[in-house]
Design a protein around this nucleic acid. Structure first.
Lengths: 190, 190, 190, 190
DNA sequence: TATGAATGAGCATTCATTCAT
DNA sequence: AATGAATGAATGCTCATTCAT
């Protein structure tokens, strides 16, 4: 009748996510995380080597979650523009509906953690988005620009909008979302 | 023949900027900042009320620096497109040539500090960029979208590119820069 | 076989009492207290919210100790004079045998802590001593003076003597003690 | 037309007295004292070797002030009782009218400073009060008790009353003052 | 396996004192 | 003589991590 092994691990992850998102990594004592997860302080260290390791694990989890959301309702044979918009809408919706996750990621990528991670990746010509860009370039539908540039053009605006929306300085409606993605498309299309 | 009164203050600011950029706010002991600035620990507190106050001052300084750079070589009567590209190029160049400043700002805007600041501003229909958008919309050259959206479309990509460049995952040449800004313009133009 | 839960708390209290008494509140680093109590610095903060809180707790403890000593061997139906002398002898003996406690209290009542406490109390017509005075006044055995005056007349000398004795400038024998309390009685009796 | 040498010294002493009385020795930065005295921080160290030295000097000043007040209106040939009451009234009035001085002394005598001083003195059979006691004992008007005991009996109540009055927990009228001193006399008289 | 009491290194901040001007 | 900017030792408190139970 006890919680299963994985239950505690994920209880810790869930608690940590929320607390990190709200307080920042450095204002989130492990003791507080343990408390919210309803486990002992020491228990965290049975599942994670250190606080840093916990943060890393959280990031991995999120990366996978996003990956799994990316291609929802993206028919392989749909036109490139449609797929482009669909993919970005997927991410945008995910982030808006999961503000803790968004805040966590923003912090993560602005910390020594994220910096490292990015350096490791670098040449990630493997993501669905990268593939889409390749395809579009070959078909001469998308501008022949380096992948990071296309990524910046299409993804940068998404992040900015989500940030504004979550901070409450701007209300992102379904309508505006689609118009924006459409404009984003104008940037990358030929 | 000694350092002038302001010298110490700016030595502290310079040292702090660099250390904050490299280690993050929370891994930057005031003692380390003092050491790098070649002043006593206590001296920091003659010029700044607290570490937070130092961070704030640094932000104010940067804000002004950026503001002063924004309109370089932007002839008032130039076409909107040209002014748009010029302004973004100014910021982009500034950030690329001042990586410490960029890293500091990234952190700042992902911390309680930046959040607060943003909330205060919010309705910033006063920046040169906002004015340019207004003008463009009136002249039916720029899409009739809310200012935050236009801002996201044009500014988001810039930030992403600078980040990549500074992290070393991508080398941003003058050429690519201009092509990117041109694509950015495609996103906001009618 | 290890120390019980309360052991550490009281080890801290004991160490703190002694160090405060000898060095004063402000010359008693928490680190020194921890060292003497043979616990880690941080441990103090598991039992007390702050150094101030520790001081407060120490005072509460002492107040109770004194209260429990006050009425030793004070038969309820003994003559008022006898009870008066007995009570004062009890306190006097307690203070002389517990010089750390005495020095602590002297400091406490000359600090913001003590001042506050006194203001809260003020109308303490509840102590055994106050009751004794009331009774004595009614029976026209004790002068009809305000309670603070009677308190000053009987308690002031006690404190002065203890101070002298503990400072070593005067040796308080059992004999002198009783003579003094008898003289003190002369001051309050009709 | 500049302040004379002594002016600065006494400005510092006056400022220090007030600040010490209000904030305690340890919450009274020398910089604050200097500010209130309208001198530079460093100037304090031209007149006093250290903060401790300043405290010591303040005490010496006060001791002398009290000494000079002690024998006001005390006719040498008046009866012992009258002189006893007069002397105590003098001190009591001085302390009540000079609360800063009182608070300073209370602190002083409960700090390492005061403790030392007392140990040095010890056998002070030289004060006017001590002489009065000697005389009274010889004339068999005052109880034959050691001087510290007589001192405690007569002086202890005075201090307690002043403390209550200054703390505001009790209003000491001229009337009560005299009644109290009269009761105090009952304690020491044969 | 899970716990949480204990630890102590680490940090922001204060302030007595010095010394160049 | 007077100043006050500069100093850095000292201190209260936090929190990641360990380990005995």
């Amino acid at each position: 009748m006890e919680a299963s092994k994985t239950d505690k691990r994920s209880a810790i992850l869930t608690a940590a996510l929320e607390i990190f998102a709200e307080n920042g990594f450095h204002n989130s004592p492990t003791s507080l995380i343990a408390q919210k997860a309803e486990v002992g302080t020491g228990t965290i260290y049975r599942y994670f080597e250190s606080k840093d390791d916990l943060i890393e694990a959280l990031h991995q989890d999120l990366e996978q979650k996003i990956h799994s959301v990316l291609l929802n309702n993206v028919p392989e044979n749909a036109p490139i523009r449609e797929r482009f918009i669909r993919i970005h809408a997927n991410i945008l919706n995910f982030l808006i509906n999961n503000p803790f996750e968004f805040k966590f990621l923003e912090q993560y990528f602005n910390s020594p953690f994220g910096i490292e991670k990015k350096r490791e990746k670098a040449s990630g010509c493997d993501s669905p988005l990268a593939l889409l860009f390749c395809e579009g370039i070959q078909q001469q539908i998308i501008k022949d620009l380096p992948e990071p540039v296309l990524f910046a053009l299409s993804f940068g605006p998404v992040i900015f909008l989500v940030r504004d929306h979550i901070q409450g300085s701007f209300n992102l409606t379904e309508d505006i979302m689609l118009t924006t993605l459409s404009a984003s498309w104008d940037a990358v299309k030929r």
